[in-house]
Computed example of a mutant assay.
Amino acid sequence: MALTRLALRHFRNISAAELSLCAGANLFCGPNGSGKTSLLESVHMLATGRSFRSRQHKSVIQEEATGLTVFAQLDSGYSLGVERLADGNGRIRINQAPAESSSQLASCLPLQVIDSESFSALDGGPGVRRRLLDWTVFHVEHSFAQAWKNYQIALRQRNALLRRGKIDAGLLSVWEQRLVESGLQVDGLRQQLFTELRGALLALTSELPQSPVSRVELSYRKGWRKEQELLAALQESREGDIAQGHTRVGPHRADLRFTVAGEAAQNILSRGQQKMLVCALRTAMAELVCNHRGRPVFLVDDLPAELDETNQQLFAQWVSRCASQVLVTGIEVEATSRPWRQLPSPWNNPQVFHVEHGCISAEPSAAQ
């Protein structure tokens, strides 16, 4: 699932660019503020319909432009296109046909992002970690998206009833039953994939035997007490839910926990060790997708600034085993390319692009 061609217009400081990308590593090098991260951001928009830096489309559109476009061809045969207009409108297309939702884009282009914000997984809120698990389940289990959608509908209806002055007990019971049906399906799919994810993560962290990262344990909390049925948990929580106006138990409160000898991992690991743990987690997620669906694409923003040279090399090895392609940014070509040039073909001959003032140009590859 690699990109072979990428074209974008009026995306932040990039007026226009059209690139041919290779399988393996594609490196985008240049000074800060040149447009490197914007390039990665445009690929993320193709896979999700939005930027990973801003939820406001207008802020991504180049100043004085009326809209932006991003288009890509994939080696799978798909073509993806996203248009966002300054007035808030836009279009999503797959193979030139209108797409119903951005989740269809995600199905075509599984994408992992490693940037400075990615490392909040340990000390961020449960929602951050829950979304990581759900990304994996979404790309492996086709039924998850509909189950999660059904759960969200039932959850909104129950919350709306909780906020009413007078509650219709019969109607509340109906929506609680629907919440339980879809919620158990969501939880079951999560638990099934979690077992695989935990195994893949521990296999990767075992490659760091001198680091406390190798002793990290991962556990799953489903969002209500494990010894209790979900319906019973909802009924027990009902009085407090009414007082607060929202549902406080269920799969929407699920979490992943990282511990070392029973202690929260973020209290034990250094910042650099936490970064390697997150890299291992995201690689484990990609491995599961690779095993079930196909190799995903990685976007890595300024890897030399985030990891030391030894860990860069190990991370590059991990990515090369499960990804179809990686797009990496960095300031200096030598430092950015070094981890990849030590890998087997095709990773050891990365395509290098120079980025400056929003202009992107390909440099001749070593094989040419």
Rank of each mutant, 00 (worst) to 15 (best):
T4I: 12
L8K: 09
I14F: 08
I14S: 14
A16D: 09
L27N: 05
G30R: 00
N32K: 11
G35R: 05
G35S: 03
K36Q: 12
T37E: 15
L39P: 09
E41K: 07
E41L: 09
V43A: 14
H44P: 01
A47H: 03
T48C: 13
S51T: 03
S59H: 10
I61C: 13
Q62L: 14
E63P: 00
E64D: 14
A65K: 12
V70E: 10
F71Q: 05
G77M: 09
Y78T: 03
V82W: 05
E83V: 10
A86W: 13
G88N: 06
G90R: 11
I92C: 11
I94M: 15
P98D: 05
S103Q: 13
S103R: 11
L109C: 08
V113K: 06
D115K: 02
F119D: 08
L122G: 11
V128I: 14
V137Y: 12
H142A: 15
S143C: 11
Q146R: 15
Q146G: 00
A147V: 03
N150G: 04
Q152P: 10
L161I: 13
R164I: 00
G170A: 13
L171P: 01
W175Y: 03
W175P: 03
V180E: 07
S182H: 07
S182Y: 09
G183D: 08
V186K: 06
Q191S: 15
L201Y: 06
L201G: 00
L202W: 01
T205Q: 03
S206A: 14
P209G: 05
P212L: 07
S214P: 02
G223C: 04
W224I: 00
Q228D: 07
Q228M: 13
L231P: 02
S237T: 06
S237H: 13
E239K: 06
Q244M: 12
A254F: 04
L256A: 01
F258W: 08
F258A: 02
T259G: 04
A264Q: 15
A264R: 09
A264G: 04
A265V: 05
Q266R: 13
R271E: 14
G272M: 03
Q273M: 07
Q274V: 05
Q274F: 01
K275G: 08
C279E: 02
C279P: 06
A280N: 00
A284W: 08
V289I: 15
V289T: 09
C290R: 09
H292L: 00
D301K: 09
A305M: 05
D308V: 07
E309L: 12
N311E: 10
Q312E: 15
F315W: 10
Q317F: 07
V326G: 10
L327V: 02
I331F: 04
E334V: 11
S337I: 07
P339Y: 00
R341M: 12
L343P: 08
P346V: 14
W347Y: 09
W347D: 10
W347C: 08
N348Y: 01
Q351V: 02
H354V: 05
S365H: 02
